[in-house]
């Protein structure tokens, strides 16, 4: 049957590990931004947030177990959004 949803069942343990990793990354980003790294602070915070969002997308939002089309679809949109942001900030930086 086409209707049957026989997609990959992710074990609870995987989600537990992912949650632990995400919490650790959160605490790292809090710790890192408390020490003064000047201009690197913003970069580090955004980088850690991007890594965290990547983990949420791949595991919690199930992208790892989705078909290739979905993977390409979502990656393309996120890359596009990131590009729009980067281009805007480049524009502001070099005016």
């Amino acid at each position: 049957m086409e209707n049957h949803n026989d997609s990959h069942i992710v074990p609870f343990k995987t989600y537990g590990i992912i949650l632990a990793v995400l919490i650790v990354l959160t605490l790292i980003s809090v710790a890192v931004t408390q020490i003064d790294l000047a201009s690197l602070t913003v970069f580090t915070a955004i980088l850690l947030a991007s890594i965290k969002s990547g983990i949420v997308l791949v595991y919690f939002m199930h992208l790892k177990f989705d078909n290739l089309m979905m993977k390409i679809f979502v990656t393309a949109v996120f890359v596009l959004v990131a590009l729009v942001m980067v281009v805007t900030f480049l524009d502001y930086n070099y005016r």
Binding site: I23, F60, H62
Partner: peptide, 15 residues
């Protein structure tokens, strides 16, 4: 942290 926990429990509900 609590929002991350809620995401995990929501994902676990799917399992």
């Amino acid at each position: 942290v609590i929002l991350l926990c809620s995401s995990a429990t929501m994902a676990m509900a799917s399992t």
